[in-house]
Simulated assay, not measured.
Amino acid sequence: MARVALLSNPRSTGNRSVLPSVRSFCAEQKDIFHYEVEHVNQIGAALRTIARVNPKVLVINGGDGTVQAALTEIYRGGHFSGAHYPDGPPPVAVLPNGKTNLIALDLGSGGDPLVALKRVLELARSDMAPHIVSRELIQLSDGSVGGKAVLGMFLGGAGLADIILYCRHKIYPLGLPNGISHALTMLAVMVSIVFGLRAAFLPPRPSRVKVSVLKHGEMQGHFALLMVTTLQRLLLNRTMPGADSPVGAMQLMVIERGRSTLFHVLLAALRGRLGRVGVSGVHLERGDEIRIESDRSSVILDGELFEARTDRPIVLKPTAPVPFLRLAA
């Protein structure tokens, strides 16, 4: 039995520099079973093989697409079942590899992926129970019976999806460090909202979106931000508003577009009070079913792009809790 199974995608941008060191480290450790895939469609076969070595923990080393595809396959593939897995799949750890690393950040994994892997191995050689946490996944589908569903943990829609796509297609190609890229993106967003400018080098104005939360009503408009997550921490190490609430697995935050709203949101965020005090134009909900409808508005679930339409809404539901390994104390 391998203590740690590591699933790596060499094509991930973050792995271009770190993977040689990871390979060398794994070659020196008898406790690590390392499996590499070239494409996300190979992840199912990879997990079938990994399941045979019965690891104590499964580590994902790749970008957002790799993590999302692996989580979907772990939950839907049935590879970790039977006598060897009476309690279901082993806990999952995520190395900090993608552009934003939101899932890794939530699990206390930041900085150097190799350092994080060493920490996983250290925990796997001891009692991991105090470090295992549960997180629901977000199940995204069109709501139809038998329709294909994908799983993730963070969804951005409305203006947030436009911002992510703008950063991906306009800023990242400049080759700047992630921190500078994100700062430039936010500057462009603030300029477009505060001054009302519209130009090809700025993020576009978001499309009109309707959001419905089961048993909590609906809202619609041109939103600056629409976010749904089951994570408890996001960028800047901020705890999600209501993260400790037992009511509703998915957390929804919607922020209206406007200069005054943007100013008050930034002020509340800097003070660490966003979601803890009422801010005009900010809507917070928790629920077990969220529907997003629009005339061709994009949403992004853990890096993968989907389109919400009026005649084909996006439906979000939580899964049963899935075990993860938290690296921080």
Rank of each mutant, 00 (worst) to 15 (best):
279 V>M: 14
300 I>K: 10
252 L>Y: 04
6 L>F: 12
163 I>H: 09
223 F>Q: 01
276 R>C: 03
124 A>R: 01
248 G>R: 11
281 G>K: 01
215 K>N: 15
113 P>K: 03
23 R>H: 09
201 F>A: 11
204 P>C: 13
150 V>N: 14
53 V>P: 02
174 L>D: 05
285 E>R: 10
37 V>R: 09
46 A>I: 11
121 L>T: 07
206 P>E: 01
118 K>Q: 09
219 M>V: 00
268 A>K: 13
48 R>W: 02
249 A>K: 15
216 H>R: 13
61 N>K: 00
6 L>H: 12
112 D>A: 07
153 M>C: 08
232 Q>S: 13
255 I>Q: 04
72 T>H: 05
192 S>C: 01
23 R>I: 15
176 L>C: 05
107 L>V: 09
128 M>H: 00
91 P>F: 02
207 S>C: 12
42 Q>A: 14
177 P>N: 10
93 A>V: 01
288 D>F: 04
14 G>E: 15
4 V>W: 00
171 I>K: 12
202 L>R: 13
157 G>I: 07
138 I>A: 14
98 G>T: 12
169 H>C: 05
98 G>I: 03
255 I>E: 04
138 I>R: 07
186 M>D: 14
181 S>P: 06
54 N>H: 04
95 L>Q: 03
178 N>F: 13
59 V>L: 10
141 S>T: 14
175 G>H: 06
322 V>Q: 03
306 F>C: 10
267 L>W: 11
69 A>F: 02
32 I>T: 00
94 V>W: 06
99 K>C: 02
90 P>E: 04
233 R>S: 13
67 V>T: 06
297 S>T: 12
105 L>M: 05
65 G>Q: 04
167 C>W: 09
260 S>H: 06
71 L>G: 01
218 E>A: 14
260 S>C: 02
253 M>L: 04
271 R>G: 12
97 N>G: 08
155 L>R: 00
134 S>F: 10
5 A>H: 09
168 R>L: 00
161 A>C: 02
298 S>H: 11
66 T>P: 07
246 P>H: 08
85 Y>D: 02
240 M>C: 02
13 T>N: 13
151 L>R: 05
258 G>H: 12
142 D>N: 11
128 M>C: 03
201 F>W: 15
57 V>T: 09
60 I>W: 01
235 L>S: 00
220 Q>K: 13
